[in-house]
């Protein structure tokens, strides 16, 4: 089950399908919080035409699994899914999905927020943006 809960993939994911998997894992779940990151067309005053994500295969999955395990230990939650897409991503498309199921909403919100912050901090994934002025590797993660 863990392998399905942590994925780095080029293809898109289904938010509803992944939410249902979390919902079905336990009848104790009373709150599900979802973070869906999508590709926006504007960043730091520049128009963006498309983006590409590079990753360190193996280490990226390992770090996402560590984040999931830590969240399950530190928060009163029942299950977590973390999926990140890599490769070329068009504007408006999905990039990252985090779904946290818990008995109560507060823990689900807190865990979901912690997971995306931690993902940005420790996961070896990089973003290249194509703008009308050229190609830029993004170095900040607000």
């Amino acid at each position: 089950m863990d392998q399905d809960r942590i994925r780095v993939q080029t293809e898109d994911f289904g938010v509803e399908e992944e939410t249902n998997k979390i919902k079905q894992c336990s009848k104790r779940i009373g709150g599900i919080v979802t973070f869906l990151g999508t590709a926006r067309d504007f960043s730091k005053g520049q128009e963006i035409n498309k983006m590409d994500f590079d990753h360190y295969p193996g280490m990226a999955e390992k770090k996402l699994a560590e984040i999931r395990e830590q969240a399950l230990k530190d928060y009163d939650i029942i299950d977590v899914t973390i999926i990140h897409r890599v490769g070329e991503i068009a504007i408006g498309e999905n990039i990252v999905l985090i779904i946290v199921g818990a008995e109560h909403r507060k823990d689900a919100f807190r865990a979901c927020s912690w997971c995306i912050d931690e993902l940005k901090r420790i996961t070896p994934i990089w973003k290249k943006e194509t703008t009308p002025e050229g190609i830029v590797w993004v170095e900040e993660h607000p």
Binding site: Y56, I125, E139
Partner: peptide, 10 residues
């Protein structure tokens, strides 16, 4: 061994 520039996932 891997050289890792600043991460920018998410």
């Amino acid at each position: 061994i891997a050289f890792l520039p600043p991460f920018a996932g998410g």
